[in-house]
Design a protein around this nucleic acid. Structure first.
Lengths: 204, 204
DNA sequence: GTACGATATGGAGGGCCACCCCGTTTTTGC
DNA sequence: GCAAAAACGGGGTGGCCCTCCATATCGTAC
C-alpha cells in the first residue's frame, strides 16, 4: 500500500508522477535487493528506476523505510499465515510451522530478515505499521496458544523467538545452502541441544 | 603474536618501525572496533594510529585479517577455556558453559562474533590459524565428549552450534542489554522451546 | 661514523557511495 | 490556459576503500 493511493484521505493524494516514480523505485529496489541483499546501493536502485537519487531519498528517507515498503506484502502474507495457523488443532506444531515459514521466506528473500529485525527504533517514531511490529503481533497469539497447550515454555517471549529466527537467517542468508542451514539450525534451536528426554535446564 | 616478532625465523624479522606501526594500528583498531563494531572505518583507524592509510592496508590486506589480529588473544583464551573444560566431570555442562563464555565475550567485544563467523573463506587461503578454525577445533572435543555422555544430540555439529551462538551474538550485539539477551536466547536454544519433558521433535 | 641497498611510508588520486541544495519541470485545481 | 503547488534531478559535499610511487627510514657492512 503506497502511502496515499487512496483518494479520500486526510492528507492530499499523491501526484500522478510521484506515484509512478514511487512504484518504479519499489520495483527496482526489489530487484537490486534480491541480487545484493539489504545493503544494495541506493544510487543503483535510483539508476535502475530511471530516477534521480534525490527522488529516491524523498520517497524513502531511510534505507529501513525502503526495505519495509519492499517487503510489506511478504510480511502481510506471513501475518495471514499466522492467522490461518491460529486455528490449527496442534498449537505447538502451528508455532513451529510458522517460524519455519518465516525462516524460509527470510532466507530466500535476502534483506527480509534485516528488515524484520530492526523495529522502528532510533528516532524514527513511525508509530505502528512497521514489519517488526506486524510480525510480532501476528506471532503473539500463536505463542500464547502454544503456551496454553503446554507446547512452549511459559517464560519465552515472542520477541525472543523472532529474534532467534531472524538471527539465524541473517547469519546464513549469504551462504549457498542457506535454506537447508536455516532449517537445520531452527530445528535445533526449537528442540534443544540435549537429546529428547535428557534434563532440559542449563546453568552456567 | 605479530607476524615476525621472533628473531630466528625463515622470513626476515620485521623492521623496527614497521613493528611499531603494526602495534599502533592494532591498538587503534581495538579502540575503534570497540566503539563502532566490526564495520569501523579503516581510514579512521589509520588516522588514530597516526599512519597513512596505505600503511594499514599493507599490514592488513583485508578487514578480516585486521579483525583476526585484534581478537587473536581473546580467541586463544577461549580455546584455553575449552581445553580446561575438557576435564570437567559433566561434559554436557562443560559444553554449555563454554558456549556461554563465547557468547559473553562476543557480546562485550563488538566485532568478535563477525570475526568468528567468517572462516578464511573467499580466496584467502591463509591455511589454518584463523579465528574460525581455532574455535572450531577447540569446540570439537567438547562436543564429542558431550555426545558420548548423551548430553547432546548425536546429529548436531560443532559448526552448527557455533553458528547458532554467533548468530545470536551478532543479532544482539548492538542492543543496550545485549549480554542479558544473548544469555537468554542461548539458554533457550540449548534447552529448546518445548517445556522439559514434552516431545522433543519438530516437523514442518 | 658513513654510505648504500632494502624496506617501509604516506599523500594524492580514482572509484564508489549516501545525502542535500536549489534551479527547473510537471501536475493540478480553477 | 494559468498560476501556485508539488515533485524532480543534476551536481556538490564529504566519506569510504584501496593503490601508486616518490620519498624517508632502517639495518648493515665497512
Amino acid at each position: 500500500m503506497p502511502p496515499d493511493s487512496r483518494t479520500t484521505s486526510p492528507t492530499r493524494p499523491m501526484r500522478a508522477d510521484a506515484r509512478r516514480n514511487y512504484d518504479r523505485i519499489l520495483a527496482a529496489a526489489a530487484e537490486a535487493i534480491a541480487e545484493h541483499g539489504a545493503e544494495a546501493s541506493l544510487e543503483e536502485i535510483a539508476r535502475r528506476a530511471g530516477v534521480g537519487s534525490a527522488t529516491l531519498h524523498r520517497h524513502f528517507p531511510s534505507r529501513q523505510r525502503l526495505l519495509e515498503a519492499v517487503f510489506r506484502d511478504k510480511v502481510e502474507a506471513l501475518c495471514a499465515t499466522a492467522a490461518d495457523l491460529a486455528a490449527d488443532p496442534d498449537p505447538g506444531q502451528a508455532l513451529a510451522t510458522w517460524l519455519g515459514a518465516i525462516a524460509r521466506h527470510a532466507v530466500s528473500n535476502r534483506g527480509l530478515a534485516a528488515s524484520l529485525m530492526r523495529g522502528a527504533h532510533e528516532g524514527d517514531p513511525t508509530l505502528g505499521a512497521t514489519c517488526h511490529t506486524m510480525i510480532t503481533n501476528a506471532g503473539a497469539d500463536l505463542l500464547a496458544r502454544a503456551c496454553r497447550a503446554n507446547a512452549a515454555r511459559p517464560d519465552v517471549s515472542i520477541t525472543d523467538l523472532l529474534k532467534l529466527v531472524n538471527a539465524i537467517c541473517l547469519a546464513v542468508e549469504q551462504e549457498p545452502d542457506g535454506v537447508a542451514q536455516a532449517d537445520r539450525l531452527l530445528t535445533l534451536a526449537l528442540a534443544g541441544v540435549h537429546p529428547a528426554g535428557a534434563t532440559g535446564g542449563r546453568k552456567m
